[in-house]
Design a protein around this nucleic acid. Structure first.
Lengths: 119, 119
DNA sequence: TAAACATATGAATAATTGTTCATTTGTCAT
DNA sequence: ATGACAAATGAACAATTATTCATATGTTTA
């Protein structure tokens, strides 16, 4: 019985090895937070729809809004969140700002999610 | 100019092909909703921590609660959400209920998320 | 410089969500 | 059956969040 053992379910069990393995592989608090934040970004259907649109082409805010039938403001707010998470990048061309996917993780993550939901 | 064209950014542009491609590849409303729901589940650090614990072993509710230093009720509520999303499965053994990962999508999705956040 | 347009942003509101507390349900041992 | 323990659940509260509206910023053209 060591200090790492856990009293649980009214019986003493030797959890030492488990607790060590978990602590070893569990990301630190900050990374866990960042990870949850990232998935939160995918956890909104408006943002997912924006990403699906950007799968097809680089588009300005106005085009995205029109394609999805939402207001410019709503889309702009969501694009800011997507950009902060580095899922999309932007490029200004005159009055317009064009958005595109930042990298291929976006597709992979969404594809994995779809694989899961389709089962 | 067809009915599918979009007036946007004060100029008429031919978006017909784009709109068609988007509509073709964009999942239906229900699947988009399910997809967002799935990612929402990953969008909470408590649930991610639970999944990391289950990466190591099948555990009862009480063990998970002790390992994470949270109440049985809080963990139970979250396990219900994880189970509804088919990310974990459960097995009763006497008074205890043991939880484990439902499939390997969980690891893949979390790994992809980590890859993105670590860049 | 002024007007017009595209985008960004702040405040407000409604809706959603995680945790706690109290209680219930299910199972085992006596 | 009764008491004890593990887990599940409902209600309540605090915190977070998506959209709307109004307005500000940045860019181009006249």
């Amino acid at each position: 019985m060591t200090i790492h053992d856990v009293e649980c379910c009214d019986t003493y069990q030797v959890h030492e090895e488990l607790v060590r393995a978990v602590n070893e592989k569990m990301p630190g608090e900050e990374e866990l937070y960042d990870l949850a934040e990232l998935f939160k970004v995918f956890g909104d259907s408006t943002r997912i729809r924006i990403l699906y649109v950007l799968f097809e082409a680089e588009l300005c805010v106005c085009d995205i809004a029109q394609t999805l039938g939402m207001t410019q403001s709503a889309i702009s707010h969501q694009l800011r969140i997507l950009k902060q998470s580095k899922l999309v990048k932007s490029r200004r061309d005159g009055k317009q700002v064009f958005y595109s996917l930042a990298d291929d993780h976006v597709r992979t993550i969404i594809d994995q999610g779809r694989e899961h939901t389709e089962e």
